[in-house]
Each structure stands twice: as C-alpha cells, then as structure tokens.
Design a protein around this nucleic acid. Sequence first.
DNA 1: GCTGATATGTTTTCGACAGCAACAATTCAC
DNA 2: GTGAATTGTTGCTGTCGAAAACATATCAGC
Lengths: 400, 400
Amino acid sequence: MSVESVPAPLSRVGNSNDQARRHNLSTILTLLHHGGSQTRAGLTRATGLNRSTIAALVAELAELGLVYETQQTDPGTVGRPSPFVHLTDRMLAVAVNPDLDAVTIGLVGLGGRVHSRVRHETPAAPGVSETIDIVRREVDALRAGLDDDQRIVGVGLAVPGLVRTSDGVVTLAPHLLWNDEPLAEPVAAQVGIPALAANDAQLGLLAESLFGAGRGVDDIVYLNGSTSGIGGSVLVAGRTLQGARGYAGELGHTLVNSNGVTCFCGKTGCLETEVSVGRLLDVLGADPVDGDEFDRMLGETVDDAVRAEIDRQLDVLGTALGNFVAIFNPSSIILGGFLGSLFAANPTRLQDGIRRASFGTLGEQVTVERAQLRTRLLMVGAAELAFGPMLADPAGVLGP
Amino acid sequence: MSVESVPAPLSRVGNSNDQARRHNLSTILTLLHHGGSQTRAGLTRATGLNRSTIAALVAELAELGLVYETQQTDPGTVGRPSPFVHLTDRMLAVAVNPDLDAVTIGLVGLGGRVHSRVRHETPAAPGVSETIDIVRREVDALRAGLDDDQRIVGVGLAVPGLVRTSDGVVTLAPHLLWNDEPLAEPVAAQVGIPALAANDAQLGLLAESLFGAGRGVDDIVYLNGSTSGIGGSVLVAGRTLQGARGYAGELGHTLVNSNGVTCFCGKTGCLETEVSVGRLLDVLGADPVDGDEFDRMLGETVDDAVRAEIDRQLDVLGTALGNFVAIFNPSSIILGGFLGSLFAANPTRLQDGIRRASFGTLGEQVTVERAQLRTRLLMVGAAELAFGPMLADPAGVLGP
DNA sequence: GCTGATATGTTTTCGACAGCAACAATTCAC
DNA sequence: GTGAATTGTTGCTGTCGAAAACATATCAGC
C-alpha cells in the first residue's frame, strides 16, 4: 500500500450526515465494478461496515437496478452461506474514440464488459461535427437494440489531445486538427445523455489500472505509443495526474537528447521524435501494420540494423523512464501500443537502461510491464469516465 | 479551482457515522490553522455546515484547548456580530532540521508562528545519534520554559535526503552520510512524544503552499537550490507527490543536457550539475556567503562572464522547468534558495526559457515565483508534519 | 433615539443512518 | 444427529447534523 502522506494543505469542506450513505453506496458499487462479484460477507469484510448496514445498502442498489443476488451454489465453508452480489447488465455506457482514420464506438457495461464495438472508418481525420453525427446515429441504433429495462447512463469520449475535462472542450488535438472545439456538451445535447471527455492516454491508464496490468497498484507511469506519437499519463496515489487545467502528462514531449531533431512542438530532442514507429518501419523497410503483426516483425527480426535501432530506441526510452522514476517513484511502469512491442523485443535491455538512468536504487524497485487490454483499452477507459458520476453517487444519479 | 477529475480507481473504505464528526472537527481546525482567525459566521460559510453545528464544533475545540473566542470589536456590518475564533498558543510542535553543519531546532505554534529557533552548530555533518541527543536536550530545555497549560504535541524532522515517511527511516542522506538510519522512532522514544520525518524539500513546499508563495494554489512545482544540490517537490491536486515509497520528487536528477558532466549519482547532465551555486561562485571569484549577500552579488554584477553564466544557468533551468510543465501542468512554479536569487537576477530570461521549452501554450499559463518563507521555511514545514495527526483528528489525539 | 431590516447565536426538535444485540438460518465436522 | 461456526434478519439505540423558532445585536433611515 502507499506510504503515509504528508498532511494535505487544504481540507475538504464539511461533511453532512447523509453524505455518509452516498459514500457507502458508492463504495460498494465501485468495489463490485472494479473487483467483480462478491458475497455480502465479503463486502462486509472489505468495507468494515456492519452486516446489517451492508444488507441495507445492497438492497438499495438492487432497487436501483444495479445489482442482484444469487444463492451460493457451492459453499465449501462452515456457516450460513452468504449470497453472491452481481452487477446487472442494465446500466450501460457508450464509449467513443475519434482517431486519425476512424471513430470507434462501443457499448460497455459495469465490470468492464464490452458488449459491442463498431469502427466507423472515415476518409480523413474526422471533424468535430462529423464525430458528433456519427455518435448520434450510433447511439440511436444502440438504443433500438436495448432491452426495456436497459439504460445508457452516459457517453465517454477518449480524445487524442489536450482536453479540458471540466467542460469537455478539446483545446488541441493536433492529429485531428481540432482546436478549441467544444465536444462533450454538443454530444450530450444531441444524444440527450450526459457526456464527458478526457485525454485518451489518461483513460487508457485508468482502464489498465482497474482492469489490466495495473490492478491494485497506486503509483504508475503509463506510456502509450501510436503512429501519431507518444502519449502518457501518471497515476499518483491512485488518482490520475491532472494538473491545473487537466493537461498534465505530456510525457512524450520531455527532453531525452540535447542533440536530437526538432519536434513538431517546436522543441528539440523530445522522446517522441527519438522513439517512434516511423523510425522502426524505416529500418524494417515495411509499411504500417497492425499491432500483432508489428510484434511479430520486431520479435523475429535477425537484421542487425533493425536490432541496433530497437536497442537505440530502448536505450532512449530507458533514459526517459529513468527520469520519470526519479520524479514519480512509481511501483510500476506500463507500456502500451508499439512501446509494448519494443519492450517485448528485448525486456532486459530496457530494464537495465532504466536502472542506469534512475537516481540511486529507485530503478530497482520498479516493475516494467506491458499493457494488457489492447483493443478494449479505450472502450473501458471511456466507459469509466461515463460511469463516473453514477459510481460516485448511485442514488443521486439513478434515483430521483 | 481545480478541474473535475477522472474518477479515482479505488474507493475508500466505508464511512462510519462518527467519522463525520471527526472530519468536521478536523476541517474547522485546519481552516483556522491555514487561514487564520475567523468569525463563526465565516466558518459557517466556508464549510457549508449549519450554524448550530459550527457552534457545537467550535465549543468542542475550545474544550480541547485548541481555540478561544473573542467578541468582535469593530463589526462594521449589519446583523448580530459573530464572535471571532482564534487558535490558542497551547499546542506546540518541535521542528528539527539536521543539515551539513548544524542542527536547527524550533518551537512552532498553530498558524505557522515560530516561537523560537536555535541553531546547534556541529563541527562536521551531525550523525544520527548526535542529532537525537541534541533533540533530546533541546526538547528538555523547551519543556522547562513552557507554561503549565502548554503542551508539545509532536516532533517533525526535515531531512535532506530520501526518507521513508511511513516509519521515519532515512534511507539515504548523501550529504549527511546517513544510510538506512532509523530516525523518527528513536527520537520519539527519547523525548516521549510522537515524531515524524520527511524530506526537506517536501516540507518546504508544504510550508510555502500553506503560508508562503503558494497559498491557495493546488498544483505547484517547487525547486530549492542549496550548496548541496537541488531538491524538489511537487504539489499535485493539493497533495504532496509521494510516490510508491515516498521518494518522489528528485527533480534535481533529471536530464537537461546530454553533453553535460557526470553527476555524483552516476548519471550525466543532471539539472543539479548544470545549475549550481558552485559554478556561480567560481565565476564570481567568491567564497560561500549567505542568501541575502548572494542575492546582492548576483543582482549588482556588471561582469560579462558572470552575467553569461547566470543566463546559461537560467536557460538550463528553463529547459528543466519546461519539461516539468509538460509533465505536471502546474499553475505555479516556486523557486527557493539560490534558485530564487538566480531567478531574481533576470526573471524574463527564465520565463522566456520556460515558454520556449514547454509544450504548446502550457508555458504561458504558469506563474514563476520566488519562495517567501526563507529561514522559517523548514521550521513551519516540519511543524506541519508534527501537527498532522492532531489536525486530522483533534479529539482523537488530544481527547482520551 | 426609534423602527425595521439584516445577520447571527441559541435552543429544541426531528430525521437519518450506522452500530449493536438477539435470534434465526444454514452449513460443516465429528 | 449434535454442536460449532458463520451469516442473514429484525428491532432498538445513540449520535450527529439540519431545520425551525426564538433571541440578540448591529446598521440605515427617518
């Protein structure tokens, strides 16, 4: 678990009495969402609340249509068997990810279950209004396919760029050519459901930390490599690093080489210019391919020039990660996209590089892992965003 | 205020009923400690709690000896005058800062008031047992001078090095030559009062964020320059960045120049090798001096070589801070120690450097400031550590 | 100076909720 | 089949904050 922290400078505002109820409802729903089905007795132990309290809370969640109970089939222990509490499939979130050449839209349930996923290809990078249109049409189609008791509670948008989460405005998405475009608000207006937007790397980390390689870890540095660059995000004491305006985590634009080339951002020697798919494809002499194929190409290569480039990129990546280790002291580093492939091609080289580039022995205390969720990643992350308000206050959002 | 955040992955454990009371007591005490005396009506507005609730909570704090009320002397507004609530001087903390050539010990009250401060010079860097001895003797002396109703509630230790805050063990303090030395526990045993230890830069940031240049700001990058190097700490969403084991914030050991010299930490081109007092003193041709004198020397110099070195260091510092801006998106950067002098010598040069080295327009949204607390800095910071448990649960610590 | 408006302290009542205790139900081990 | 262990169920209790009604103190306008 995490270290006892230095006291926070500002305390939260006073707690009213019934906020305790909301908090406890939220805690139980979140526990089920992130940890899967459990017995009521298990919830009692996990929360420290009284049996009777748990019973009342679970009953309220059941009334809200969020959970149902089943009899334990194979008890195996002494004592009265405790009923299992499961999440229903009635509350759903729509996940949206506009990208260079397509808008991907998914229907996701609690517990990270991706029910469906559709990829709308676009001839060029989709514009904002085009994206909104696609979402509206797709949500209409999804609604038509729902059971009577099912309900879409929110839309989450994972955007490759700087997003002001507070009002869902995309400040800058260079690859989509979006600039100060309101997104969440018009989507909400069009589909009649609350919508929230956030940076794709932040949501990717969130998904991995809940359902992937980062389960149960509170301090994570996450880097995701795509054809359009390197996005990053950091989990600090269990919370996503946001910064003053929600723009924190531009780890791809930190210095790794004073003698490097100029980045499109105007600086020199940025991580994402030194470590890139493009450079790897160049030495491979290949065209862009999908992730699994790229994995295979890197892993099976015997070409010395390719191996040299892989090692060079791993060394640079190690330098950058060493800096991040000195800054964040994470327990875990998670690498997604082509950075995962790069790592898999020669894990010890990267680990050694990180150790060399870290301050003192910090580099030895960190584990490096590859991201696990792959295609589900952004669907689960965006859904988490959409589910956020309901998880934080189930009765408030679903009740009256 | 801060941006609405992406939902946290792990929820806290269930809330019991009387935790609300503790939380509210803590909130009010913390509000007074960090914000100064206020009227009861002001507390009502600040917390959103009911008048009657505030009355009861303030009465309890008064009974614990933490606060007292006075009649408003000059009301100036309509309505029944609300009594002022002040902190008493009865609860005190001992602040300790072992450094290269001295152990500084202070007696600090709530609200950041430094009652006394003693500097015990040592012939060489003090050892752990020497430090503990000095603290024991000094606490005995301080106790003898207290009024009957006064009480020392804790000892806070600000250590220049890596500290595991959870158990107060100093993992590594290179300049003191300490290595895996238990500190907080033996101090507590010797003086019979709870003791806590933390990194000096973390506590410096804490102090500045509460009582200095960072008041009311939730996202701060703090760098402090001393003769022994550059220490850093970061305030993330109002909380000190700790990392998995409490070692986060080694900002002095991040890469700023691939062609730089080798640092004692083994890496090349670290910020603290490129930006240092030593290099400034070299071009100044001067011996080490105190802060105010150094300020004057840098500000008044007309020597081109000195100005060139100042500008070089400011440019390097700008590069580093640009990276930190991309990573943390802070609203404020605070510079202490000789970095404050350096900044004051040519503020626009550093601001321009940061803007150039930041991603997009992020560099324009950040303010750069000099630290304010000077000699009080670590006394207030260490006291905050000592007061932490009492601020978090006044009745629990002082009551039974 | 009076009067009304305004703001706030004080006291009492009330409602919500978590804890607790006693009892019932269900399983396992022998 | 009996006892131990575990957990659900039910009704009661204590605590705490909110709300309402009343009391108090100041200011503004006349």
